[in-house]
Design a protein around this nucleic acid. Structure first.
Lengths: 194, 194
DNA sequence: TTGTTGTTTGACAAAAATGTTAAACATAAT
DNA sequence: ATTATGTTTAACATTTTTGTCAAACAACAA
C-alpha cells in the first residue's frame, strides 16, 4: 500500500499534481489518478465531491504554490543582479520538479480566461520598472522590458516542457539532459545580463 | 453553411487543426469538432472510422507540415546568418498561426514516445555543427550548441503558447501583443547572433 | 425512368467516465 | 461490549462520449 501518512486526501492531491505537472498527462481520468494513488476511485468523490472540484482545487493550489515561491523573489529588496540570479534558480528548480505546471495554468487560463488579481499586475509592473532602470544603467540590452520578461520565462520554462522531445532530437540521455538544464541557470543569466 | 469547397473530409481535418493548434483546446471532443465544422458528428466516423484515427492523422500531418516548412530552411545552402533569419521568420509565422501545434506534438510524444527518424537527427546534427562553426568564428557566444538550439526555439515558441496569459499579466491588448511578437523576430536574432 | 454511387442524417447501441449509495470496516470513546 | 465517527469498498446509476446502422438524399449514368 502506498504511503498515506498525510492522509488520503493529501495523497490524492499529490498524485494528481504529479500526474498533471510532472508527467504532463493532461487528459488523466479520475480512475487514472485513483490507480496511481493506489486508492479506490470512490474516494475522490468522498473527499472532493466531484472531478471538477478536485481539478479546480489542484489548479488553485498550483497557482498558490507558484506565487509562494516566486512572489518573495519578485518583491525582495535585492540588487537587480541578485534578484535575477535568485529568480532563475528558484524558477528552474520548480520547473524541473513540475515542468507542466505552468502549462496547466496556461491551458486553464485559455479555458476559463480567469482574471489576474490587480496586486499581481502591480508586482509585475514594479519588476518591469526595475528592468527599465537596469537598461538605463547599461546592464541589459535595451528593449521593451516586457520582451525581457518574456525572454526570461521562455528560456527557463520551455526546455523543461520539451524535455522528452529534446532528448530524442538531440540524442542525449537523462543524465546529459539534466546536466544541460543545470548549466542553463548560469547560461541564461549570462545571456540576458551585462 | 460553412465552406465545403475542399470537401467535407478536408473541412473536418482543418477544423480539428484549428481547434487543437490555434485555439489550444486539447480536450476537444468529436462533437466539439463536428459542431465547429458545422457537420453531423457521424461524418467524422464516416471519413475517419474512429476518433483515434482522426487524431492520429491530424498529429501526423502536423509533423509533416512542420517538416515541410522547416526542413528546407535547415538544409538550405545559405550563410548561417541568413539561415537563422529565415528560420526565425518562418517558424514565428507558423507559430503565430498555430501556437499550440508544437505543444500538441510534445504531448503526443510524451504519450506515445514516438521514435524520431534517423534522417531528422542527422539533419539536426548538421545544424549543430554549423552552430559550432559560427561560434568558432566568434559570431555566437560560446556554449553547447544544443543550448543554442534550445534557446532559439524557446524564444520563438513559448511566447505564443502563453499569449493569453501574457496579455493579462502585462496588461496589453491583442494589437499590442501582436506588435510585440512581430518585433521579436529582429529581437531574437540580435539577442543570439553577433 | 431506373439504378448506381457516394454522402448525409437521425435513431440507436456501446463504451467510457463520473457520481451515488448502502454496507463493511476500523478505531477510539463511553 | 457497545456506540459513535470517520473511512473504504463494491455494486449500481447516470452522464458523457464514441461508434454503428439503416434509411434518406443528391447527383449522375444507363
Amino acid at each position: 500500500m502506498a504511503v498515506k501518512d498525510k492522509g488520503t486526501e493529501q495523497l490524492i492531491k499529490d498524485t494528481a499534481k504529479r500526474i498533471f505537472f510532472s508527467e504532463g498527462k493532461l487528459h488523466a481520468t479520475t480512475q487514472d489518478i485513483a490507480d496511481a494513488a493506489g486508492v479506490n476511485r470512490t474516494l475522490l468523490n468522498y473527499y472532493f465531491r466531484s472531478r471538477d472540484i478536485l481539478f479546480e482545487q489542484v489548479a488553485t493550489e498550483a497557482r498558490q504554490e507558484m506565487s509562494a515561491v516566486l512572489d518573495p523573489v519578485f518583491q525582495a529588496e535585492l540588487e537587480f543582479k541578485d534578484k535575477l540570479e535568485k529568480l532563475i534558480t528558484v524558477f528552474m528548480d520548480q520547473a524541473t520538479k513540475f515542468p507542466f505546471r505552468e502549462m496547466y495554468v496556461v491551458t486553464e487560463h485559455n479555458r476559463t480566461s480567469r482574471v489576474i488579481p490587480e496586486e499581481k499586475k502591480t508586482m509585475i509592473k514594479k519588476f518591469l520598472k526595475e528592468i527599465s532602470a537596469e537598461m538605463e544603467k547599461g546592464k541589459i540590452r535595451k528593449m521593451d522590458p516586457k520582451q525581457f520578461c518574456i525572454n526570461l520565462f521562455a528560456l527557463m520554462a520551455y526546455p523543461l516542457i520539451t524535455t522528452c522531445l529534446n532528448k530524442s532530437l538531440y540524442s542525449v540521455n537523462d543524465a546529459e539532459y539534466l546536466k544541460l538544464m543545470k548549466d542553463r541557470k548560469k547560461l541564461i543569466f549570462e545571456m540576458i545580463y551585462q
